Computed example of a mutant assay.
Amino acid sequence: MSDIITTTISLEALAPHPARHASPPVAHNRKRKKRNKHVFIALVASMAAMCLIAIILFHGYVAWLLAYPYVAPLSSNPEEAIGVAYEDVVFASHSGETTVSGWYVPASANDANDAARTVVFSHGYGANREEAWVPMYELTKLLHSLQYNVLLFDYGYASKQYKAPATGGREESQQLLAAIDYAKSRGAEDIVVWGFSMGAGTALQTALQTDEIDAMILDSLFVPSSEALFDNLNQFVPLPKFPSLPLIETMIPLWTGTDFGSIPAEEVIANAYDMPMYIIHGTQDAKAPYGVAEAIANNQRHSLTRSWIVDNGQHELLFRMHPREYIQRTALFLSQVDGENGAKAEA
């Protein structure tokens, strides 16, 4: 009997006890679920962080592209392209922060009074002093035949030797001021700035800082602002306005040392300049709406100021569209400016 009892007790001892062995698997499952939840949260957080970093890096790269646009190297020179003599020139910007290089084409005139007239070209963003589609060489040849000196130069973002970031006109205006100073040092008494696209906008910014400009011709006028630059960028890379625009605005100063808030866009548009201007713009300009050009023209009070809004004209292709009329209109404007300057000199 004792053997039976002992065996029964031993078998009972070996049998699983529900209360004792059910708890550990439940606790283990809870720990595993909790661990999996933490892993999932960490994974989601990591992916979100990686996406955020990717977004920041992408917009940083876009801001860098805006500061350092690709510009093709110079392919020729005035002597090779149009058969006129020229000089390579280099000078410091008015601010002293950058260096400017360009070409000086002396007038073909023998009359010293004629040689005292100089046109300074102000090229557009993403282009250099050649700006073939304008076309700059043909206009240089025209001015040379009209007995004007011509100064063509590269803004910093277009220079290969003296590279500098695009600043929306802050430093570019200093480079244009230096170009005007150089023309004056070569004997120029009457200076006309002929600007294209952002180069025209830079001319207006520069005119806020000096009275050495006697007249301006502004073709496809583009006034840089955060909104305008974003609209142009959006034509090539579709981006949502938020968060793209704030991110780009934040990162631009990292590459350029300046921000959009320093660009006097509103003042440029509203100002009445004390000089004659010829504003030329196309109705189909996808980069710079012609309404801005019209607003600037309407704010002017000088008797010689005029505008030519070209029906169906596209950005910087107005000469190509109407070459004969373009030459006739600009030559007439220059002759009228010259006559006014001559009358002032005699008074």
Results as ranks from 00 to 15, higher is better:
residue 70 Y to E: 07
residue 115 A to R: 15
residue 38 H to W: 14
residue 267 E to F: 03
residue 180 I to T: 06
residue 265 A to C: 00
residue 319 F to K: 15
residue 51 C to D: 11
residue 335 S to K: 15
residue 230 F to D: 02
residue 299 N to F: 00
residue 163 K to C: 04
residue 162 Y to H: 15
residue 146 L to Q: 15
residue 296 I to Y: 03
residue 329 R to C: 03
residue 49 A to M: 14
residue 62 V to Y: 06
residue 138 E to Q: 11
residue 179 A to D: 13
residue 1 M to T: 14
residue 224 P to C: 14
residue 4 I to P: 01
residue 73 P to E: 07
residue 315 H to M: 07
residue 272 A to L: 00
residue 24 P to G: 12
residue 93 S to F: 10
residue 211 D to C: 00
residue 169 G to M: 08
residue 78 P to E: 03
residue 220 S to D: 12
residue 42 A to E: 01
residue 64 W to I: 01
residue 125 Y to R: 11
residue 69 P to L: 09
residue 102 G to M: 05
residue 94 H to E: 15
residue 254 L to N: 11
residue 18 P to N: 01
residue 153 F to T: 09
residue 283 T to S: 08
residue 13 A to N: 07
residue 81 A to V: 09
residue 319 F to S: 02
residue 59 H to G: 03
residue 55 I to Q: 14
residue 275 M to R: 10
residue 240 P to K: 11
residue 316 E to I: 15
residue 243 P to Q: 12
residue 206 T to K: 00
residue 214 D to V: 08
residue 205 Q to A: 12
residue 298 N to W: 04
residue 331 A to C: 14
residue 145 S to F: 05
residue 324 R to I: 12
residue 344 K to Q: 10
residue 164 A to H: 02
residue 199 G to N: 12
residue 295 A to C: 00
residue 219 D to K: 04
residue 163 K to R: 13
residue 244 S to R: 06
residue 82 I to C: 07
residue 78 P to Q: 05
residue 305 T to I: 03
